[in-house]
Simulated scan of single mutants.
Amino acid sequence: MAEIHWIKLKTTMFDDEKIRLIQSVPESDSILIIWIRLLVLAGKTNDEGLIYIQRNMPYTDEMLATLFNKPLNVVRLAITTLNKFNMIDIGQDGVIAITNWEKHQNIDGMERVRELTRERTRRTRERKKQQELLSNKKKDVALQVTLRNATDSDSDTESDTDKNIMSGKPD
């Protein structure tokens, strides 16, 4: 799926009960940063809250530690904590899924953005096609005028030659 370039964060996210409980554990700031980074990755993947590099290649804890520039043990703590609070789910294949993705993101809004983009692209292509047709018509008209002028010039030349012959004047 195509990558989106934004995700929705609520201004009340820190009022959420789960977030407040996470804030009471060690490494809470790192866990919350990792939570936001996971939301961003889910937005990049743009597949209903799933997080993976490719469909058959989930991120490992080591990969996430590298991407997030966090120690491996902190990433593992974050994954365990977020899983325990049912904020993420880890599938049998190792793919991380944001639980209730549609709650975190405006799915209808994203679909509306996709639809508007498709419509804008369609209109742009139609406009370009019309411009090409118009350009081709202008070229055809210009060619016809050029051909007609060339024919007129030939006729003029022949008429002048005919007149010169009839009047006895040399070319």
Rank of each mutant, 00 (worst) to 15 (best):
L116F: 11
M110R: 14
S155A: 07
L147E: 05
I88H: 03
L67Q: 09
N56C: 03
K128Q: 11
I36R: 01
K139F: 14
M110Q: 14
K84G: 06
K103W: 15
T161Y: 15
N106R: 04
K8Y: 14
M166C: 03
M87R: 10
L133K: 14
S167K: 10
N86D: 15
M13F: 14
L133G: 00
P58I: 03
Q92V: 08
D89M: 05
L32R: 07
T12H: 06
T60P: 06
L9R: 11
G91Q: 04
L41K: 04
D171Y: 15
K129Y: 09
I4W: 10
M13I: 13
T117P: 00
H5F: 12
V141P: 02
S167R: 11
N136K: 05
T151F: 15
R37C: 02
R148L: 10
V95A: 07
S159A: 10
K103D: 12
E115Y: 14
P71F: 13
A2T: 09
V95L: 01
L32F: 13
L116G: 02
I107W: 13
I88G: 01
N86I: 10
R120Q: 02
T99N: 13
K128G: 01
I88P: 04
M87H: 08
F85D: 03
S159H: 03
V75R: 09
R122F: 04
A42E: 12
I96R: 07
D61N: 13
K84S: 11
T66E: 13
E126I: 07
A65K: 11
V75Y: 08
I19R: 10
R127G: 00
V95M: 04
V113Y: 13
A142Q: 10
L133P: 01
N149P: 02
I36C: 04
I53Q: 06
V95N: 10
A150Q: 13
K18W: 02
V40P: 00
I90G: 00
V75D: 09
A2H: 08
S153I: 08
I79R: 09
W101H: 12
K103E: 13
S28V: 12
E119T: 06
S30V: 05
E158S: 01
T60L: 05
I107H: 08
L133W: 14
S135F: 11
I51L: 06
E126A: 09
A142G: 01
Q144H: 02
E27V: 06
A42R: 05
